[in-house]
């Protein structure tokens, strides 16, 4: 079998002196969709931040390999150029930075890194138009500043739209479903599904089994108090929905 896209080995990490991840192990192969679920505060967003390279997170122990390379050594922009993409739980508003300009700059950085030619304005607009159709994103969003004044749902859609344009190898979606109405949820999930390829992988963080009706995971993991305490197939999500985290894992663990 070929090299995994992501291998997390015994990852311990924290922020501001607080230990949050306490030994995470996880392997994601090309073509797979993994879902990670877990109660509030269990460390899901922390894991995403550590993978994306956010400043201020200290890794105390463990290793993360991305396509065989040491991911934790890389700057956030380097990770992105190598194909890691994080759809933020809370996308940042950046007034004054035009969305089209920003996204074109991002795409061209990634293309340069891959040794591809940069797209000019016309080529870029063509690409964008095509991708917009997938997400049903209002055209006006592109003319505005990045996420500035976007509704919660628009922000989430914009994240997936960016993913569609940047075509990552590993997409980490942090609660992309929260704040979306049913119709938007369908559109966004369909978008995500269309972006699935045999050579990439998706890592979906969610609280609700609802999303997993649309984005069908190959594996479901339960993160609890900084550790993956249970893994299984998609049926695990249903089980969780029915019984809750406590009854599933509570007897196995002392809460922190």
């Amino acid at each position: 079998m070929s090299q995994p896209i992501l291998e997390i080995k015994n990852l311990h990490a924290g922020v501001e002196g607080k230990q949050i991840l306490k030994g995470v192990d996880l392997t994601i192969n090309a073509g797979e969709v993994h879902a990670i679920m877990g109660p509030n505060g269990s460390g899901k967003s922390t894991l995403a931040a550590v993978l994306a390279g956010r400043d201020g997170y200290e890794v105390a122990e463990g290793q993360v390999l991305y396509c065989g390379k040491d991911l934790l050594e890389m700057d956030p922009e380097e990770r992105a150029r190598e194909g890691v993409f994080l759809a933020f739980q809370y996308p940042i508003e950046i007034p004054g930075v035009n969305t089209t300009y920003f996204l074109k700059a991002a795409l061209n950085e990634i293309r340069k890194h891959k040794g591809l030619s940069e797209l000019d304005a016309v080529e870029f607009i063509e690409l964008v138009k095509e991708k917009m159709k997938i997400l049903h994103l209002p055209e006006d969003c592109l003319k505005r500043s990045v996420n500035d004044g976007f509704s919660g749902g628009e922000k989430k859609r914009n994240e997936i739209f960016q993913m569609a344009v940047l075509e990552p190898k590993l997409a980490i979606l942090d609660e992309t479903d929260s704040g979306l109405d049913i119709d938007a949820l369908k559109v966004v999930s369909e978008g995500v599904n269309k972006l699935k390829r045999p050579d990439n992988a998706q890592f979906v963080i969610t609280h609700y089994q609802r999303l997993l009706n649309y984005i069908i995971p190959d594996y479901v993991h339960v993160l609890f108090d900084g550790r993956v305490v249970k893994s299984g197939g998609k049926e695990l999500a249903l089980e969780l929905e029915e019984r809750g985290y406590e009854s599933l894992v509570g007897h196995e663990l002392q809460p922190a």
């Binding site: 933020f88 991002a106 950085e109």
Partner: peptide, 8 residues
Amino acid sequence: YYLRSRGI
């Protein structure tokens, strides 16, 4: 961070 996470 947001901009960097997109490759910029």
